[in-house]
Write a protein that binds this DNA or RNA. Structure first.
Lengths: 350, 350
DNA sequence: GTGAAAGCGCTAACAA
DNA sequence: TTGTTAGCGCTTTCAC
C-alpha cells in the first residue's frame, strides 16, 4: 500500500552491471547486445517489474506524425463518417498535447477514391509519417494499407473489410450481430401482428451492407415467420426515393428496416408524407443529428448505433499503443453495437 | 500541411523577452508575475498556439498518486460496481505507464461505509495522494469529498448524488432519461396489449432508485394508460424474493420493469419458476455476466445499461485532465444510457 | 558488444 | 518581480 517509486532504466543498468544504453537495446530487442547479457537484463526487468516511462520515452523521441485519410464529413457521406471523425479528433486532441501530431485528409467517397488518396500519401508523405488511420472498402485499398504496413508504418483500418497484413490493424463492428439486433427489436415489437416489413437493402456491392442485411433477413426468416419481408435495393437519396414511394403506395407495412445511414435519412423524409408510416415500427441505422426530428416525432422508432465515435476513438488509441508501447494490440478489434431510441439518441448523435 | 515543430516554453520566453520561469508562472496563473508581463505572455501563447508538452511536464513532476475508493466487486455489490472497476482499471492501466499511480481500496457497501473509508484515507493518506475517485451515496460522504477538494485534492465522484464543492467533479447517468427509455421500450413492445406490469421499485432511500423509478412511472402514466402498474418495493435478493413470488402467484403480468442490478438478477432467477414469465416483456437494469443465461433464454428481454464501464473510464480521464492539464473538465459529466438485448449484451457485460 | 553523454521540454527551487 | 538552473527518465549517437 506504500507509494513506491517506479524502477528506472538506470537502476536496471546498475543492478545488472551494464550501462543504460545496453539495457535499452536489450528491451527493444535491438542488436548489439550479446545473448547472455540480454537474458540477464530481461530477467532483472521482469523481476523488478520495470516498465518504460512513457513520458520520458516520448519526450525524447519527439513528435510522431499520424495521417488520417477518410471520407469527408459533408453531405450523405457525413452521416456515417462524421461520427468517426469526431471520435478520432476528440481522442487525438487529448493525445496531441503529448507527442503525436495528427494530420487530416478528407477525401470524396467513391469506391476508388480512397486508394487514390492513399497512393498520393504513399508517394509524397510516406517518409514523414509514423502512423496511418484510414478505411478500406475494396481490394485495392487493402493493398495500399499493406504497403504502408510493410514499410513499417502501422496502419489502422476503420469499418473495413480487411485481410491479414503486417502492421495493419483494424476496428470494426460485428455486422452479423447488428443485423440480428435489428431483427430482435422487430420481433418484440411486432410480435403477434401479422403484416409486411419493408427492407431497404442498400448497396449489396458494399461488404457491410450485404453482411448486415443478410444477417437481418436470416433472423427474420427464422424467428418472425408471421411477417412478410419486402426488399427494396438502392443506395442514397436519389436511388431509393422513387422505389420507396412506390412500395409505400402499393402496399401496407407495419414495419421497416433500413441498413445504412443515408437510406435511413431518406426514408424518414419520405415517411412523413405517408399516413401509414405513423404507426410503423421503423428501425434505421446510425445516429446523426439530421435524424433528431424523426426520433422526436416518432417516425423513427429505433436505430442501430454502430459506435462510430468509439471506432474512431479506438483507432487512435490503437495507433498510440502501436507507436509508444512495446506491446501490440489485437490485429482486429470489434466494437459494440447499440440500439438507440427517442430517449437516448441524444447521447449518440454526431 | 507541413509537419510543424511545436512551440516550446523557451520560445515563448524568447519571443516575449522574459525567462522560462516567468512564462511558466504566467501560464499557471501563479503569483510573482506582473499583470503587464502576464498579459504579454498569454497573448504570445495564444498567438503562437502554444500548448504545454504534457510528457515533459509529467516527466518533470514525477508520479501522481490517485486513490480509488469504491464498493467491492463481489456479491450483489459487484453487479453494478464491477463494471465501474473494470472501466477504471483498464483506463488507469493505460495511464499508469505514464505517470500516474493508482491505488485501489474496496470497501463494503453499506450506506455509511464509504464515509468511514474516506475518513480513514483522509487521516492516513491525504498527504500522499494527489487525486481521489470515489462514490458518494449520502450527505456524509459528500462532506468528506468536499474536504478532500478543499485541501487541494481533486476528487471525482461516480454515480453519485453530488453537491457543488471546490475541486469536486462528478460523472453520472441521467436517471430521468433512463426511466423514460425503459418506458419507451415497454410502450413499443406492449402497445395495444392491455394488462399489468410489475414494477420493482427498489430502495427509495437511494437517490438513483427513486429518481429512476419516478421517471419510469411518470412516463408510463402519460403514454401507456392501457397498462396497470403494480409496484413492489425492496432491495436485494432476500428482500424481494417473497413479495415477488406472491405478486406472480396472485396476478398475471405481461411486462416487468426492475430498477437496479441486484433486483434484476433476483427477478430473473424467480421468473424461471413461473410459466407466465416466458412471454413477458422484462426490462431490467445493468448488464453483468450473471445475467447472460437470462438474455440467452429470453427471460430478460432488455436491460438498461448505465454505462458503468464508461463512467469508470471517464472518471479516470477527468482526473488525468485535472492533474495534468491546465484546463479543467466540466464539474458534472453525464454519460450515455443504452438499451441492451440478446444480440448485443455481450459487448457490455462485466 | 558496451559505455558515456547530450538533450528532449518542462517544473520548481533558489538566486538576484 | 524576474532569471537561472538542475534534473525528471529515456533515446540515440559516437567513442571505445
Amino acid at each position: 500500500m506504500k507509494n513506491e517509486r517506479r524502477v528506472t532504466l538506470k537502476e536496471i543498468a546498475e543492478r545488472t552491471g551494464v550501462s543504460v544504453g545496453t539495457v535499452h537495446c536489450a528491451i527493444y530487442g535491438k542488436k548489439g547486445v550479446s545473448e547472455k547479457t540480454r537474458k540477464i537484463i530481461l530477467e532483472e526487468v521482469k523481476k523488478s517489474n520495470f516498465h518504460l516511462n512513457e513520458n520520458a520515452s516520448l519526450l525524447k523521441r519527439g513528435v510522431q506524425n499520424v495521417m488520417v485519410v477518410l471520407p469527408k464529413m459533408e453531405g450523405e457521406d457525413g452521416f456515417y463518417f462524421r461520427g468517426i471523425w469526431e471520435g478520432i479528433k476528440k481522442t487525438a486532441e487529448g493525445l496531441s498535447r503529448s507527442h503525436f501530431q495528427f494530420r487530416y485528409m478528407e477525401v470524396d467517397y467513391r469506391l476508388d477514391e480512397i486508394s487514390q488518396a492513399l497512393a498520393k500519401v504513399y508517394d509524397e508523405e510516406a517518409d514523414n509519417i509514423q502512423g496511418l488511420i484510414t478505411v478500406s472498402d475494396n481490394q485495392e485499398a487493402n493493398v495500399w494499407a499493406a504497403r504502408f504496413g510493410r514499410m513499417g508504418i502501422p496502419t489502422v483500418l476503420i469499418s473495413s473489410y480487411k485481410e491479414k497484413a503486417k502492421n495493419v490493424y483494424s476496428v470494426k463492428v460485428n455486422h452479423d450481430k447488428a443485423g440480428k439486433l435489428a431483427g430482435e427489436f422487430l420481433y418484440h415489437t411486432l410480435r403477434g401482428k401479422p403484416g409486411k416489413v419493408l427492407v431497404l437493402t442498400g448497396n449489396t456491392d458494399i461488404y457491410s451492407n450485404r453482411k448486415y442485411v443478410t444477417a437481418f433477413l436470416n433472423y427474420m426468416r427464422e424467428h418472425c415467420d408471421w411477417l412478410d419481408m419486402v426488399c427494396v435495393p438502392g443506395f442514397g437519396a436519389e436511388n431509393i426515393d422513387v422505389s420507396v414511394r412506390q412500395a409505400l403506395e402499393g402496399e401496407n407495412f407495419i414495419g421497416a428496416f433500413i441498413c445504412n445511414a443515408r437510406n435511413t435519412m431518406q426514408f424518414c423524409k419520405i415517411a412523413e408524407d405517408y399516413d401509414q408510416c405513423r404507426d410503423m415500427i421503423v428501425v434505421g441505422t446510425d445516429v446523426f443529428h439530421e435524424l433528431s426530428p424523426y426520433f422526436e416525432n416518432g417516425v423513427l422508432t429505433a436505430s442501430i448505433y454502430q459506435c462510430n465515435r468509439e471506432q474512431g476513438s479506438r483507432a487512435v488509441g490503437m495507433l498510440q499503443e502501436l507507436l509508444s508501447g512495446t506491446e501490440k494490440p489485437e490485429a482486429v478489434e470489434e466494437m459494440p453495437i447499440g440500439l438507440v431510441m427517442k430517449y437516448n439518441y441524444e447521447f449518440y448523435v454526431s
